[in-house]
Computed example of a mutant assay.
Amino acid sequence: MYYTYILRCKDNSLYTGYTTDINRRMKEHERGINSKYTKAKGFSNLEIYFICKSKSDAMKLEYKIKSKTRNQKLYIIKNPQDFIKQLKEIENFCILDVIKPTE
Rank of each mutant, 00 (worst) to 15 (best):
K36L: 05
L87V: 07
N34E: 12
M26D: 05
Y15A: 07
Q81W: 08
M26P: 10
T16K: 07
T38F: 01
Y15I: 04
K55M: 15
R70I: 01
S54D: 09
L14W: 06
N79H: 15
K88F: 03
I51V: 07
I22L: 00
I48T: 06
D21Y: 08
N34S: 09
R25Q: 04
L46Q: 06
K78G: 05
Q72F: 06
A58L: 10
T69P: 07
K53I: 02
F50W: 10
P80F: 11
S67Q: 15
C52I: 04
S67V: 04
L74F: 14
G17V: 10
K88V: 05
I51F: 02
S54G: 10
F93C: 05
I76F: 12
N12Q: 14
F50R: 11
K53Y: 11
S44N: 15
T38D: 10
K73P: 00
I76N: 11
Y18K: 09
K60E: 08
D11G: 05
M26I: 10
K53L: 03
D57M: 13
C52H: 05
N45F: 09
I76Y: 09
S56F: 12
K100G: 02
K85R: 13
I77W: 02
T38W: 09
I65V: 11
Q86P: 06
K88Q: 14
K64N: 10
R70W: 05
